[in-house]
Design a protein around this nucleic acid. Structure first.
Lengths: 229, 229
DNA sequence: GAGTGTCTGTCAGTCGGCTGACATTGCGCG
DNA sequence: CGCGCAATGTCAGCCGACTGACAGACACTC
């Protein structure tokens, strides 16, 4: 799961193929046979009946979230190439027309021995997901809403490899409400805090859905990062 | 990581050997060679220099936690047989005299192909850890302190396979302060809430560090579980 | 242009949980 | 036994965040 918004899918270092790349490649031909394609219309809930499935997004966008009757917490948005597993307690909904590949977890486990690169791919996905979970736990346990927003903005920059410097632009690809759900807070609180951060001169609006960094040090301080330089 | 207190180590279903069992078994002999033994005295911090290590607890007890300058959040207590990896941002401290087995992650990855059962073991550890992380996220995002305490108590019962019925006993193996750290709250708040739950008759004290369930329905309601029966 | 829906900003009221402070209990040990 | 220390229970004061409500901004359609 990519904790950031519309995740630019596979940014894989030289460790090996991602699961998505693997099944498209030559050596994954047999593996591909395990998967069935499925289409989801916009707003369609992924049926919780098919648990224990591995899914790969081919096209579209999925939102993964935890829910109670009264509140929802988004865990991630999945873009084409992203991989997820339904055996967690998370729900999944299609944000737009989406097609995905599905395979039962048992089948994948059976293939593990046959496709050595598959092991590494699966472990890598799990490790990355775990890392993002810990980021979320840190957010919820240690950081105020303002800090979480600052961290969210900094992650957005880091994901593109941009430094947090004066003039750096941040494209908000989600609505305030969606960001609030991702940070575990209410829409109104996120809106107020963001406004306050602008009023205090740390950032500025640049048209609809765009921000510019004015005071990197303030952002980093709110994010609870060690001040360097 | 076992989210519960002093985790009764391996309660593995019939899926295969755990990593800890695997390295002790015949077929793990070569694997064992990757590991070096290390001893930690009580209160010793696991050196953050050796990142990217797989560790297996042999004897003693470790606490895994996230920390800032001003606060700590315990993620898990590791008992003999438990497995963890240091590549997360978590810190580790020995609660008592502890000995553990250490292997570089790279070495383990190299062995993956040679020991097919190892793949399953590693994936299982990661999946379990991820599941516990999601439980913690649910706690922090959806449940009040009272709810988290109720959920903690219910998990304790479930872990022993006991039902939450009138008269069921709960052994608190941690101090209130340690429980608070595990639930992401302050010591005082945890203490007050626990006292209130007792005052309201849902549970009762039974000597030092022991509780009895008096009103299972109340506990389940606080925990936010669907009321059945 | 008017009408409609969505996204957004903002406010007052309320409450849960944190902080700091202090009293109490229980246990180990000289 | 009495001292000391750790673990607890409890309180008042404060603050951050949620709730509900409403108004403005923007995009789309007819």
């Amino acid at each position: 799961m990519s904790h950031a918004p519309p995740s630019s899918s596979s940014s894989r270092p030289a460790h090996g193929l991602s699961l998505a790349e693997l099944i498209e490649a030559e050596e994954g031909r047999g593996l591909l046979a395990c998967f069935a394609e499925r289409a989801l219309g916009e707003g369609a809930l992924f049926d919780q009946a098919d648990r224990d499935q591995i899914l790969i997004v081919r096209r579209g966008r999925l939102r993964v979230y935890l829910a109670t009757h009264e509140r929802e917490l988004s865990l991630a948005y999945l873009a084409p190439g992203d991989v997820f597993s339904t055996h967690t307690r998370a729900q999944i909904v299609a944000q737009e027309e989406t097609t995905l590949l599905l395979a039962p977890r048992r089948a994948i486990e059976r293939e593990l021995a046959a496709y050595p690169p598959l092991q590494a791919a699966v472990i890598r996905v799990l490790a990355r997901t775990l890392g993002q979970s810990i980021t979320l736990i840190e957010d919820l346990a240690f950081h105020s809403v303002r800090g979480r927003i600052a961290r969210y903005l900094l992650r957005g920059l880091a994901r593109r490899g941009e430094a947090c410097a004066v003039g750096a632009q941040i494209r908000l690809e989600l609505t305030v409400e969606e960001i609030a759900a991702l940070l575990g807070t209410a829409r109104q609180t996120a809106s107020s805090e963001l406004s306050a951060m602008i009023r205090e001169g740390a950032i500025a609006r640049l048209g609809r859905g765009n921000l510019v960094v004015l005071d990197p040090a303030a952002l980093r301080a709110w994010a609870g990062e060690p001040q360097s330089g």
